[in-house]
Simulated assay, not measured.
Amino acid sequence: MSNIVRIATDKRRSRVVIYNGIAFVSGQAADDRSQDIRGQTQQTLAKIDSFLARAGTSKHHLLTAQIWLKDIKNDFQGMNEVWDSWTAPDAAPTRATAQCLMGAEDVLVEIIVTAAVPDVTMTQV
């Protein structure tokens, strides 16, 4: 059985859990929530890039993504513009996007991703 590796863990959650060569990145949102949907999406994806790197992988190895928008009618296009420029060429993950109530009023987007971790050895994490 593979080890379970947790990254950036606190009492409530881990930001990343790696198991059996798969990195599960928890829901990420922008830190500067005064930004519009494009700004919040850029910040969120930058955080995801950082956590993927800490897990020994990258957006080139994404398997799936879940995107939650506060206002899908008004923010879907802007979020997609940023998403489309961020995703790795020929490596788009499966994806679902939905509208939902957010945990904080000023959060416009939250994104969860799962990625393969190529050639990982648990001592490297």
Results as ranks from 00 to 15, higher is better:
Ile18Val: 14
Val109Met: 11
Ile112Glu: 04
Met102Ala: 15
Val25Tyr: 00
Ala98Gly: 09
Ala8Thr: 08
Met79Phe: 13
Lys59Arg: 15
Gln42Lys: 09
Ala88Pro: 11
Lys59Thr: 07
Ala116Met: 08
Arg15His: 13
Met102Val: 12
Val5Gly: 03
Val107Cys: 11
Thr44Cys: 10
Leu62His: 04
His61Gln: 13
Ala46Gly: 13
Ala53Asp: 10
Trp68Gln: 08
Met79Gln: 09
Asn3Arg: 05
Ala30Val: 09
Asn74Met: 11
Ser2Asn: 13
Ala88Gly: 08
His61Pro: 02
Val113Gly: 00
Asn80His: 10
Val120Cys: 00
Asp32Arg: 09
His61Thr: 09
Leu45Ser: 02
Arg33Leu: 12
Met122Trp: 05
Gln77Glu: 14
Gly56Ala: 03
Ala115Phe: 05
Thr97Val: 14
Ala46His: 12
Asp31Pro: 00
Ser2Phe: 07
Gln43Ser: 15
Ile4Lys: 07
Val120Phe: 02
Ala104Met: 15
Gln28Gly: 04
Val117Asn: 05
Glu81Cys: 11
Thr94Ser: 08
Arg95Phe: 05
Val5Ile: 14
Asp75Asn: 14
Ser85Pro: 07
Arg54Tyr: 05
Ser50Gly: 15
Met79Val: 12
Asn20Asp: 15
Ile72Asn: 01
Arg13Pro: 00
Ile112Asn: 04
Ser26Val: 02
Met79Asp: 06
Ile37Val: 14
Met1Leu: 09
Asn3Thr: 07
Asp119Phe: 11
His61Ala: 13
Ser50Ala: 15
Arg54Ser: 08
Phe24Tyr: 13
Tyr19Ile: 12
Ser58Cys: 13
Gly56Asn: 01
Thr94Val: 03
Lys70Gly: 10
Cys100Met: 14
Lys47Glu: 11
Ser58Lys: 03
Asp84Met: 15
Ile111Gln: 00
Gln66Leu: 13
Trp83His: 06
Lys59Asn: 15
Thr121Leu: 03
Asp49Ala: 13
Thr64Asp: 12
Asp49Cys: 10
Ala30His: 05
Trp83Asn: 04
His60Ala: 13
Gly78Ile: 01
Arg13Ser: 11
Ala8Leu: 06
Ala55Ile: 04
Asp36Ser: 00
Phe76Ala: 09
Gln124Ser: 03
Ile72Cys: 07
Gln40Cys: 08
Thr87Ala: 06
Gln124Trp: 02
Gly39Ser: 03
Leu62Ala: 07
Thr94His: 01
Ala29Arg: 01
Leu52Gly: 01
Val16Gly: 03
Gly27His: 06
Ala92Leu: 14
Tyr19Gly: 08
Asp10Ile: 04
Arg13Trp: 06
His60Val: 09
Ile72Gly: 03
Ser26Gln: 05
Pro89Ala: 11
Phe76Asp: 06
Thr41His: 06
Ala115Ile: 04
Gln35Asn: 10
Lys59Ile: 08
Thr87Pro: 00
Val17Ser: 02
Trp83Val: 04
Asp32Thr: 07
Leu101Asp: 13
Ile111Tyr: 00
Val82Cys: 05
Ile18Arg: 02
Ala92Gly: 10
Val120Asn: 01
Pro93Phe: 03
Val25Met: 07
